[in-house]
Design a protein around this nucleic acid. Structure first.
Lengths: 266, 266
DNA sequence: CTCCACTCTGTACACCGTACGAAGTTATGC
DNA sequence: GCATAACTTCGTACGGTGTACAGAGTGGAG
C-alpha cells in the first residue's frame, strides 16, 4: 500500500499566512544574503507534487532539491501548511477567466461561462492532481483565489438569482469539476499505484468473485458495469462522465433561471 | 498544522482483500485460540476513525485499544489498506436502499429514489467523515458496495436511458453528495482543527486583507461572500447548498429523461 | 509424543514534521 | 572601528508512522 499525506490548508497562523500569500514582507535589512526565495521554494514544491503527489512532498525533499538543509526552509515558510496554502493560490492563478461579455450581450452567456469555468478546473486538477488531496476547511485567501471567486460570480450575475443562489450555483459547478476530476485522476493513477493494469486486476478479481456471488444476483450491475467498463477503458471515459454531468447540471440551472425570469419579467 | 494520512483503497493483494471482504476463510485448524476477530478489529478501527479521523487511526492505536501488541493485527489483516477496504464496505452497509416501487408504479419514482440515495450518502459521510479521506481508485468489491451499485441502478432502470447514461447519472448524484458533504464536514471541523472559531479567524483575517485590497476591487465577492457567510454561519448552511445542488441536478436529469421518452414514446 | 500450523510479540528500519540551539554573516548605532 | 542586534543556515533530537522479520509459545493431528 501507499500512504499519502493530506494537508489541511488554513490551519496555520492566518496573519503570517496572509502576508505570505500577498507578498507583504520586504527584503531583510540585516544578516546574510538569503540563498532562497519563497517563490523558488513554491515552484520546487509544486514540481515535486506534480511528479509524485502530495505524499512524496516532504520538507526534506524540497530542501534536497534546492541544495539546502531541511530546516532552512522554515526561514521562509512557517510550516508545511502555509507552504501548501501558497501552492494552492499559485495554482489557481493558472485558471483562465471566461472571456468578458458586454453587458446585455450574448444570450445564455452564463452557460458558456460556467462551461468554461468547469473545464478550466477539470484541466487544472489534471495538471496538479495534488490539489485534489487538499482539504480546504478555510480556503487560503490569496489574490488568485479571491480573483477567481469574483469572476465566477460575474458569470452568474444579473440573472435574477439571489446572492446565496449565485454562491450555490458556483459551488455546484466547481464541486462537480472537482469530484469528477478526482475519479478521473484516481482511475488514471490506480495502475501506477498498484503496479497492476486494470486487466491484470480484473483477471485476479473476477474468478474470486464468481466463487462468492450467485449468478443473476446482480443483473443490472453485471450488465451496466460491463458497459461502463468498456467506455471507461477508453481514454474518453472519465471525461465523458464529466461532460455528461456538466450538461445535466447546466440544464438544471437553466430551469431555475427560467423560473426566476418568469417571476420577474423584464 | 495537522497531517492526516489518506489511504488509497484497493492497493493491496486483490485476492486476499476479496477473501477478507466476503469472509471466506474458515477458523484455523491448529494453533492457539485467536484472541481477536477481523470483525472486532474493524469495529474498533471504525470507532477510532469516527472519533478522531483517519489521521489518528494507526495500527498501534487499534492494537492498544484491543489490549494487544501492534503486530498482532497483522495476523488478521494483511495491511492497513485491506483493513480500510473492509471498513469502507462495512460502512456502505449502513445505507438504507430506497423503498422498492412496484413496476410501472408511481410516476417520477426515480426522482424520490435518487433523492433518497443522495440524502443517505450525505448522512453517512457525516456519520463517518473518514470516508471522505479515502481515494478509491479501484473500489473494494465487497458485498455491501456491490449491493449498493445494484439498487442504485434499479432506481434509474427502465427510463429509456442507455447503460452508460445510467452509470453516469448515479455517479453524478453520488459525486454531488460526496463533494458537498466534504465541504460541510471540512467547515464543521475547521474550528476543531485550528482551535479557532470562524469569528476569531475572521477578526484576524479581515484587517490584514483590508491593508492589501483596494476597496471596490471585488464588489461581487464582497457582497455575495457576506450573504453566503451569513447563511453558512447558521447550522443550515452546508445542508442548504447540498439540497440546492441536488434539486438542480435532478431537474437536469428530468430534462434528459423527458427528451429520451420524447424520442421513444410508449 | 512429535511435529507443525498457527498466534502473538519485541525489535528494528526508514521515513515524517518540526522544536531547539549553536554558528556564521551582515548592516546599523555609537 | 567596533559591538550588537538582526538575520540565515544547519545538526541534532523527539515522537510519531507502517510493517519486515525472527523468535516464542500454543494446541490439534498423526
Amino acid at each position: 500500500m501507499e500512504i499519502v499525506s493530506v494537508e489541511y490548508s488554513g490551519t496555520g497562523d492566518p496573519k503570517r499566512s496572509l502576508e505570505l500569500l500577498w507578498g507583504v514582507q520586504g527584503p531583510p535589512r540585516r544578516g546574510p544574503k538569503p540563498k532562497l526565495t519563497v517563490d523558488r521554494i513554491v515552484t520546487t514544491a509544486m514540481a515535486l507534487a506534480d511528479a509524485d503527489g502530495l505524499g512524496a512532498l516532504s520538507m526534506r525533499r524540497i530542501a534536497d532539491e534546492l541544495g539546502v538543509a531541511a530546516m532552512s526552509i522554515y526561514t521562509y515558510v512557517p510550516s508545511k501548511a502555509e507552504l501548501i496554502d501558497v501552492m494552492v493560490d499559485r495554482a489557481s492563478g493558472e485558471l483562465a477567466p471566461p472571456p468578458d461579455v458586454p453587458p446585455g450581450g450574448v444570450r445564455d452567456a452564463w452557460r458558456s461561462g460556467l462551461e468554461h469555468i468547469a473545464r478550466q478546473n477539470w484541466a487544472l486538477f489534471h495538471r496538479h492532481p495534488w490539489l485534489l488531496e487538499i482539504s480546504t476547511g478555510r480556503p487560503p485567501m490569496g489574490p488568485q483565489l479571491i480573483g477567481k471567486y469574483e469572476y465566477e460570480l460575474r458569470t452568474v450575475d444579473g440573472l435574477g438569482l439571489t446572492d446565496v443562489e449565485m454562491d450555490s450555483v458556483i459551488a455546484l459547478v466547481n464541486g462537480h469539476a472537482q469530484s469528477s476530476a478526482k475519479s478521473s485522476v484516481d482511475a488514471a493513477q490506480a495502475e501506477r499505484r498498484t503496479g497492476m493494469t486494470d486487466e491484470e486486476w480484473w483477471e485476479i478479481t473476477a474468478p474470486v468473485l464468481e466463487t462468492v456471488i450467485r449468478p443473476g444476483d446482480y443483473p443490472l450491475g453485471e450488465r451496466v458495469g460491463t458497459a461502463a467498463a468498456q467506455v471507461y477503458g477508453g481514454a474518453i471515459g472519465p471525461e465523458h462522465a464529466f461532460e455528461f454531468g456538466l450538461q445535466r447540471i447546466l440544464d438544471g440551472i437553466e430551469v431555475l433561471i427560467a423560473a426566476r425570469s418568469a417571476d420577474h419579467p423584464r
